[in-house]
Design a protein around this nucleic acid. Structure first.
Length: 952
RNA sequence: GCGGGGGUCGCCCAGCUAGGUCAAAGGCGUAGGCCUGAGGCGCCUAUCCCGUAGGGGUUCGUGGGUUCGAAUCCCACCCCCCGCACCA
């Protein structure tokens, strides 16, 4: 007996020998083109990849069985920094990185040694993962496989074309951009490269120049609109400041700030250092108001935050108020030699009116939150509260010069512009929290120059993209709004970087196209890559014009053929192949890619291709959990797809994942579930053999019709769910529900061979998209020819639906349940049952009631109407019965009632045939079915499908 | 803060965009039984509370409302998860 997990190699080989999944254009067949976003090759594919991709494969297999010509290609992503960084770390002897490769990924030591070469690293994982993708049974056309970057020159040419086209369309611009930057590594520090400060990104401050006679104190603020309320400037008396020439002016800022400024496109020459205390008591001139304000000491001023210089607005900034209060009440004034007169002149100036607050919102917030002093952390909360409220609801008072009457947000905007225009301000970026690079260095903000951007913020582009999303099918539907919001929210995207692997920008080769930009329209490349290879097309032949012809139908083939040295017929073939497969019918991935990759995918198609080539289907699923916890390699919580397939086999791996979740819910991979699934699948083949062996050849009975009848419902449910990519619902219907049907069948009757055969033949077809190996094996054992993977999807045969057989089974089930419940309640031992079924008059009554209810009448009316039809002499006592029928009808529901009414069941004979079964199920020793006299006992009336049962 | 998605019977989760057929599917767990040399698998039964007749009571985040009738519709509130970028 072949164990289920040993089937894999057998069938993969057969599929490959038959070239079952190689898809070529077929004019006689409709096509379906499905894709899974290529995975990044710095490690093994994990069960999360397996989940998302299995959904694609299930859909592909389903559609193939439905008769579509299905293309499911595969490729590998090499573009970007991580592979290069990892190789770098191995070169440097980084133990942590080596450990991940050896312990988590199971890479042999001698292979890891070779990982010093990033290309080797990427190809190693490509090899490893290709093997997994084959073994898990994805129905891939491998002729079209490729990887990215300049190490795949054909693909690189394609990306160049893409870039040129985007630039021609005006979607590429060059500009500057602030990033978190490690001064030691001299590179941007991404989230995953950080020891500390995940999610922290540069924030923009406004610089405000307070002029001393010999220099300028440069304060930084988020609230330039509060300048009219500035009363003084704070410095940290213990802090180290510098006097530095910045773009030709003498500035005084913290020592750290001077270093930061030099990375933000400013010319900085430090002249000398000074202590904060040296500045105390001096007066400087505030911009906007021209007011002379003193420099005072404050300990809350952080030297590593912004410029280390803060201007004070005690009326509206809690920390300023706290520092001022501390200074006035403590002995700091004397310590730093601040003249009493200087301090006494500093009082809060109210400049913003805020509903619900008085003159000085900062003071009120401090009092209410009971903030003790400027070093109390509660000051943060007060600041946040006042900042937010004033921003949204505040209005500038009449003492605010030209800003008077503006809302706070208007004033803020105006103030920034004014400061810049007058030379009194500027902008400055800083990180709101500490960011520490993996190398241990504290990061700063650097403004990168010459960065290339894609203008995803372009309004026209956005509108067209929204229209494309509108037209696309999004599964699940809840994800649609997310796409819409993402398009609305997108800004410019830096589409190139200077390190890592990739394709150089065709017009500026020191930049490499980054990963989220070379992954957006490559599905078009799938349509032609195998032909390019087979025909020996050289990269240099793939000019922009050639791609223009193939993908956009531009140019004239004959002329182009001469110029590019590509055969004219070949050009036509490439064009035809592209036109056949495009657009993409389904692209599915985890929800983490909605706000970037998947939306970029849509937008770039919109930008580069005609409308009819925009994606048709977008699938999104949840993020894999492992035993209920988030997957994380660094925490050692990781399951490679290969591990899963090795342990449980491909079918169980697929099935476990599919059964785990759908929609945007997160699937949870649990080893226990996988083991259960493996054993269930194993026993399935045994079960089939066993049942068939014990089956009989006999005429078809009601139960046989029942089994095949409910099977039609399973077929319908599975198909419907798959159309919506509801893979969990579909699998549940195809596997668990069907299994339960079979259980009932074999329990109720000795299986009939013909029925079983038909059932199993259909069942394996239903299972084929989910667990293809078991399905193929079942088919083979049943003597089926060819491949289940290429067999037609079962149609739900209406002629197989037998409502009477279904009603008969629910009658039997109902009677068994009722007897059990009664037995539970009466503690006396009972041994026999009398079952009274409804007579013909009751059916007619039910019919009448059903008709009346169907027309939407109230209970009372129904009773009147039905009674009116009855003969005068029968009306007596009928009201109660009708009422019972009404209640019963309402409980059963319209649909069920229609079925009951239109399929009159001979209940007596159904139950008589089932008596032995009923006794066996309920533990009764005998039972009889009666057609008369049931109404007498306890006022109960036998209703259709609801006989009266008397136990004794 | 902004945006997206959710809160269901021990757990996971279906149903909720077409209100009654919902005490509420399915899987898991738990308990008992069959099978087995013993396991595992498989199979059967039970699993909100109460009930000496198939019934009743109370449930679907919280509080209101609409309706003959609401897990499903409306309003308010509370709580949880995920994104917020230059990176795969």
């Amino acid at each position: 007996m072949v164990a289920v997990d040993e089937l894999a190699e057998k069938w993969v080989k057969k599929w490959e020998e038959a070239e079952l999944f190689n898809a070529d254009p077929r004019p006689d067949k409709e096509k379906i083109f499905v894709t899974f976003p290529f995975a990044y090759m710095n490690g093994p594919l994990h069960v999360g990849h397996a989940f998302s991709a299995t959904r694609v494969d299930v859909y592909a297999r389903f559609k193939r069985m439905q008769g579509y010509n299905v293309l499911f290609p595969w490729a590998w992503h090499w573009t970007g920094q991580p592979v290069v960084s990892a190789a770098q770390k191995i070169r440097e002897g980084d133990e942590r990185q080596r450990k991940i490769f050896v312990e988590m990924d199971g890479v042999p030591e001698e292979e890891v040694d070779r990982f010093v070469d990033p290309v080797y690293l990427a190809s190693y994982y490509t090899r490893l993962n290709r093997d997994l993708v084959r073994r898990i049974g994805f129905s891939i056309d491998w002729r079209r496989e490729f990887h990215t970057t300049s190490h795949e020159p054909l693909f690189s040419r394609f990306v160049e074309w893409q870039c040129v086209k985007l630039r021609e369309a005006g979607y590429v611009v060059q500009g500057t951009h602030p990033v978190a930057w490690c001064p030691k590594d001299k590179s941007p520090t991404q989230d995953h490269d950080r020891l500390e400060g995940e999610g922290v990104s540069p924030e923009q401050y406004t610089l405000v120049k307070f002029r001393l006679d010999d220099a300028t104190l440069v304060a930084a603020t988020f609230r330039p609109e509060t300048l009219p309320g500035a009363t003084n400037v704070w410095v940290n008396p213990e802090g180290t400041y510098v006097k530095a020439e910045v773009d030709g002016e003498d500035w005084i800022v913290s020592r750290e700030a001077a270093a930061k400024l030099s990375e933000q496109l400013r010319n900085v020459t430090v002249k000398r250092e000074l202590k904060g205390s040296e500045l105390l008591g001096r007066y400087c001139k505030a911009p906007v108001t021209g007011r002379e304000v003193p420099v005072l000491p404050a300990l809350f001023v952080g030297m590593s935050v912004a410029t280390g210089v803060v201007y004070s607005v005690p009326a509206h900034a809690p920390y300023d108020w706290l520092a001022l209060r501390d200074l006035k009440s403590g002995d700091a004034r004397l310590k730093y030699g601040i003249p009493a007169k200087t301090l006494s002149s500093v009082e809060p100036i109210s400049i913003i009116s805020l509903p619900g607050f008085g003159e000085f919102p900062a003071v009120e917030a401090v009092d209410r939150l009971k903030v003790t002093d400027q070093l109390d952390r509660k000051g943060e909360a007060a600041t946040k509260e006042i900042y937010t409220k004033e921003f949204h609801q505040g209005r500038m008072k009449q003492n605010c010069l030209k800003y008077s009457g503006m809302t706070v947000s208007q004033a803020k905007e105006a103030a920034v512009l004014d400061l810049k225009e007058n030379g009194d301000g500027g902008s400055f970026y800083d990180l709101p929290d500490a960011v520490i690079c993996r190398c241990g260095t504290r990061c700063i903000v650097k403004i990168l120059q010459g960065q290339w951007f894609l203008t995803y913020n372009d309004e026209t582009w956005k509108e067209r993209s929204l229209a494309a999303i509108e037209r696309a099918k999004v599964m699940p539907a809840e994800a649609r709004q997310w796409f819409v919001e993402t398009v609305r929210w997108l800004r410019e995207w830096p589409c190139a970087r200077k390190t890592g692997l990739g394709t150089p920008l065709p017009w500026d080769a020191e930049w490499l196209v980054e990963t989220l930009s070379d992954s957006t329209i490559y599905m078009a490349f799938y349509t032609i890559v195998h032909i390019l290879r087979a025909e020996g097309v050289r990269p240099e032949q793939l000019t922009v014009e050639v791609f223009d012809y193939v993908f956009l139908g531009r140019g004239e083939a004959g002329e182009l053929s001469r110029r590019a040295g590509v055969k004219e017929g070949l050009l036509g073939r490439l064009r035809a192949e592209f036109l056949y497969w495009y657009p993409v019918d389904l692209r599915n991935s985890g929800k983490d890619l909605v706000a970037n990759h998947l939306t970029f995918f849509v937008m770039q198609h919109v930008a580069l291709f005609p409308e009819e080539h925009a994606p048709r289907g977008l699938g999104v699923n949840g993020m894999i959990q492992l035993e209920g916890a988030r997957m994380s390699k660094s925490h050692g919580n990781f399951v490679a797809a290969k591990q899963a397939v090795d342990s449980y086999g491909p079918d169980a791996t697929r099935a476990t994942l599919l059964a785990s979740a759908e929609g945007m819910d997160d699937p949870d991979w649990r080893a226990k579930n996988a083991l259960d699934m493996k054993e269930k699948l194993n026993s399935m083949l045994d079960m089939m053999t066993k049942f068939l062996a014990s089956s009989a050849d006999r005429p078809e009975a009601s139960l046989d019709r029942w089994l095949l009848s409910v099977m039609q419902q399973r077929i319908r449910d599975t198909g419907r769910a798959l159309e919506e990519l509801k893979t969990r619902t579909a699998f549940q219907s195809a596997f668990f529900s069907t299994w339960n049907d079979l259980r009932w069948y074999v329990r109720r009757t000795k299986p009939r061979r013909e029925t079983l055969l038909e059932f199993f033949r259909t069942w394996l077809l239903l299972l084929a998209p989910f667990t293809p190996f078991v399905a193929e094996e079942m088919n083979e054992r049943l003597g089926g020819r060819g491949f289940v993977s290429a067999a037609p999807w079962p149609r739900d045969g209406q002629e197989r639906v037998d409502p009477r057989a279904e009603l008969a089974e629910s009658l039997v089930q109902g009677v068994v349940e009722d007897i059990k419940r009664i037995k539970d309640v009466v503690r006396d031992t009972v041994g026999s049952a009398e079952i009274y079924v409804a007579d013909g008059s009751m059916s007619r009554l039910l019919e009448d009631v059903h008709a009346e209810l169907g027309s939407g009448k109230r209970d009372g009316e129904v009773i009147r109407e039905v009674l009116a039809k009855a003969a005068q002499k029968d009306r007596q006592g009928l009201a109660g019965t009708v009422q019972a029928i009404i209640k019963y009808s309402r409980d059963a529901g319209q649909q069920t009632m229609s079925k009951i009414v239109s399929n009159r069941l001979d209940e007596a004979s159904v139950l008589t045939e089932a008596l032995e079964f009923i006794c066996g199920e309920t533990g009764l020793s005998s039972a009889v079915v009666r057609t008369e006299g049931g109404g007498v006992k306890k006022g109960r009336v036998p209703l259709p499908m609801k006989p009266v049962i008397v136990l004794s």
